[in-house]
């Protein structure tokens, strides 16, 4: 297992990849974010986006899936997240786009009262042209190898 003590500021990782299909963009949006530019390819053509785009919350959910797979693959002793400092949807995500993810650790600090530590990371998702579509700075909690004295 990789515990809090093993996480170093500046360390970078990749988060795998995901292809967005039109069907999944529409399915997510019908359930959670039914604005015409997320659910209706024809209506989307007349919007400022010029075509169907994924809900930003769908892109975040995919970012979470890529992170969860990385947690499992790398045996990270994470135990959830208290929040996200900032999140920007910088470019539209369209059907057929292949997103890849990368993360870098910005800062780590131990909890004073509880047996875990905090890690602040920047996570970016890029499309197949290398353009950043999502940029966020988030916190995660890691279990400590040893409990604080």
């Amino acid at each position: 297992m990789k515990y809090f003590e093993d996480v170093q500021t500046g360390e970078a990782d990749t988060l795998g990849s995901h292809v967005f299909t039109e069907a999944e963009i529409i399915a997510f949006a019908k359930k959670y974010d039914p604005q015409p530019f997320h659910t209706d390819p024809e209506a989307a053509k007349t919007t400022i986006f010029g075509g169907l785009i994924a809900s930003g919350w769908h892109t975040c959910a995919i970012m979470m899936r890529m992170t969860a797979d990385t947690i499992r693959r790398n045996h990270l002793a994470t135990t959830g997240s208290p929040g996200v400092d900032s999140c920007r949807w910088l470019r539209p995500v369209r059907p057929g786009d292949t997103l890849t993810g990368r993360s870098v650790v910005l800062e780590t600090w131990p909890s004073r009262t509880r047996p875990f530590g905090f890690v602040r990371s920047r996570i970016e998702l890029l499309n197949q042209r290398g353009e950043i579509v999502l940029s966020l700075i988030g916190l995660s909690m890691y279990q400590r190898r040893e409990r604080p004295a």
């Binding site: 997240s81 929040g83 900032s86 920007r88 949807w89």
Partner: peptide, 18 residues
């Protein structure tokens, strides 16, 4: 909230806490 508002999406959010 969206019905009745001339919104066209969002560019993101800040300070999200669970």
């Amino acid at each position: 909230a969206i019905p009745g508002s001339a919104t066209t999406g969002a560019i993101g959010f800040d300070g999200l806490k669970w």
